[in-house]
């Protein structure tokens, strides 16, 4: 019992690290729940993961700490991309309650469940004394972990990896779709440009803008007869109604130019 107390006492640099990093971690974890934007939540989640990794490293588990960073930053990055793809680039949570009275019930349930967990885990005891990290790491942290993973826990390890591979394959099958027609190659496009329709655009579409006066993408180019070149404007901008008239940017009298 006293051995356990000795081993778990934190002092010196580790205590300093703990008292600086722990409040920051808790703050980040809380604000992860409270911020409105999904992307901010993802960033704060990454911050929590990295500070946990620093704790692991400080507690003589460098491999676990580093793997935590490699795996979880990658995972959070994926989450980030999912947010962008599924929720939208600039979305935030709506705080209106759709079902009345849900909030107090949720808060009570969360507090009750949390209290239950804390009180249970706080009273739990192991039926054997722990050896401490110094004994576990006697051949080095990485070889000790490898020894356990590839001997005692090899079955669990393989089952988990099989599960993950199945999940990845399943995701690929679900997301897979066959192209109806083959994707045109650069060569196909070049051939098509010369062999179909008019040769007017064979050298590329005209660029937008009125020469020397305005060359932004929202101003259509002018043809030699003064009419508008429709092909110089993106269809998206036109649909959005963002296109400006190019008439004000025309040069009126060329002969008045100073010589």
């Amino acid at each position: 019992m006293y051995l356990a107390l000795e081993l778990t006492k934190t002092s010196g640099p580790e205590a300093v690290l703990f008292w600086i990093l722990a409040p920051l971690t808790v703050l980040a974890a809380l604000s992860m729940l409270l911020v409105k934007k999904a992307v901010h939540s993802a960033i704060l989640l990454a911050a929590v993961m990295i500070s946990l990794a620093i704790f692991y490293i400080a507690q003589d588990a460098p491999f676990l700490g580093i793997v935590q960073i490699v795996v979880y930053t990658g995972a959070v990055m994926m989450l980030f991309l999912f947010i962008l793809m599924l929720v939208g680039v600039d979305s935030s949570d709506s705080l209106t309650e759709t079902i009345p009275g849900l909030r107090p019930i949720a808060i009570t349930a969360a507090l009750g469940f949390g209290g239950l967990l804390v009180s249970l885990l706080g009273r739990a005891t192991l039926d054997h004394d722990f050896a401490g990290l110094t004994a576990a790491n006697i051949d080095g942290n990485v070889p000790a972990l490898a020894q356990l993973l590839f001997s005692r826990y090899v079955w669990a390890f393989e089952v988990v990896s099989a599960l993950l591979i199945t999940a990845a394959l399943g995701a690929m099958v679900l997301a897979h779709n066959h192209r109806v027609v083959a994707r045109p190659t650069q060569r196909d496009r070049a051939v098509r440009r010369f062999r179909t329709g008019s040769l007017a655009t064979a050298a590329g579409l005209p660029g937008p803008g009125v020469y020397a006066l305005h060359n932004a993408v929202d101003v259509p180019a002018l043809l030699p007869d003064g009419s508008i070149a429709q092909a110089s404007i993106s269809a998206t901008l036109e649909a959005r109604g963002d296109v400006i008239d190019s008439a004000p940017f025309q040069l009126e009298k060329l002969e008045e130019e100073p010589k």
């Binding site: 990295i50 990794a53 491999f63 960073i69 080095g140």
Partner: peptide, 18 residues
Amino acid sequence: DLPVGVLYVLAIASVGVY
């Protein structure tokens, strides 16, 4: 000198992408 020094470099690189 970390026993997992090279992995540490990889981990830092993946933070850098953020």
